[in-house]
Design a protein around this nucleic acid. Sequence first.
DNA 1: AGAAGGACCAGTGGTCCGTA
DNA 2: AGAAGGACCAGTGGTCCGTA
Lengths: 255, 255
Amino acid sequence: DTTNPLDALSQEGLPEEPMQQEKEAAGSGGGGTWEMVVGGGRKKQRRRKGQKKVVEVDNDDELDGGDDDDDDGGGGYERQREHPFIVTEPGEVARGKKNGLDYLFHLYEQCRDFLIQVQNIAKDRGEKCPTKVTNQVFRFAKKAGASYINKPKMRHYVHCYALHCLDQDASDALRRAFKERGENVGAWRQACYKPLVSIAARQGWDIDAIFNAHPRLAIWYVPTKLRQLCHAERNAATAAAASSSVSGGPDHMGF
Amino acid sequence: DTTNPLDALSQEGLPEEPMQQEKEAAGSGGGGTWEMVVGGGRKKQRRRKGQKKVVEVDNDDELDGGDDDDDDGGGGYERQREHPFIVTEPGEVARGKKNGLDYLFHLYEQCRDFLIQVQNIAKDRGEKCPTKVTNQVFRFAKKAGASYINKPKMRHYVHCYALHCLDQDASDALRRAFKERGENVGAWRQACYKPLVSIAARQGWDIDAIFNAHPRLAIWYVPTKLRQLCHAERNAATAAAASSSVSGGPDHMGF
DNA sequence: AGAAGGACCAGTGGTCCGTA
DNA sequence: AGAAGGACCAGTGGTCCGTA
């Protein structure tokens, strides 16, 4: 609520020291970055240095190549937020200060890797072994250097990843359509619910069973909203069937 | 810490009003009591009235038959603790102010019934559906009138129930042996660990898999101590195998 | 405005320890 | 003493809302 630039400046540059005196050893050290995966070789592990907001200058859409974006300048404080997602087609790398949807889905695969590591450690120690991506896994990921992974983000897009897993063709088509129309990520995210509900409809409405049947999806909690949508739609479908049976349908339900 | 009888008396008779303004309807209403199950027809649903501790008179081992034990006198306050367990043989009903082990195991079956009810309600509402006996299930049991079911007790004896499920013959033999020897419940409970560890040894040490493979056991969390014992014993067995392999065993492990 | 994520909160698993 | 269980506590799932 302070609007004085000097006051704003005075709040900059607080280094966010991660506590290293933790019990668990770091493990893999963060693994390959997205650029290593897709072969671009830039970006990621971002924690750009303290470009004060009051002197923010780069809002240009620099088209790759330069490293003016993510160099650390040697100081290395003031961890930056991840670039926001934009709707990209399959295979498309986001340009400018954006991340694409292949990268988003890759984060889910990374979480799976971290879960597997946590599971192996737990088995080794004879401790109880998580079957889902839990707080413990997010903590492990952070300690392993994957500071760009966090729970609210991963939970936010779980159903988008679910569609990608369960019907890649439909997921790809949706991405192309929403990119074409210039929709933002929020709109695309909302649109991912409907095809999932349709899949559930075809499989007896049991969204938990659908998640659990897919090895990469089974480790994610079913999002509350998706569960609610499936439930509401099932009730609507049941009511429709019942009312149609009153007017002579073959599937009579009692009244 | 007050030793004045009048002070003690002044703390008696506080009726423990259960909150009825809850969301969930009560359901089955507590179901058959143990006596109904075994045909005795007395006891249970105990909440004997306010026999002040300062005027406690009955420590006789009244041998059933009388109803001087559990009559309510009309007032019906001061919920009493459950009678302690004693080691009984299979089929034996405990006499006096005691409960037997068949009754103990029956409580686990009751919890399973309550879980199934909670699951059915959850499925009906499209809410997430517990696979284990959770706090929610204990709360439901209490609301359904099964006030004698509580989490610390059920967790305390889980591994005893596990042995009963996984090797009834061994469980029965252990009960007979400990009854014969006049051991108390705590000793019997401790003794239940060892045969379970042996079962785990025969099945690759995966106590979670053993629980999960048994339909009535799968709904219970593996007790921490049992998990630890299996782990320790596995390491001991592995170390023994390794050291024996040094002296020429066929199962060489590297050093 | 759209979006990322620190941080909060109600209810969990786990069991200790004051009680009888 | 042996045992039952109220009640506490650290860490969870879930997501809001102050932030950029």
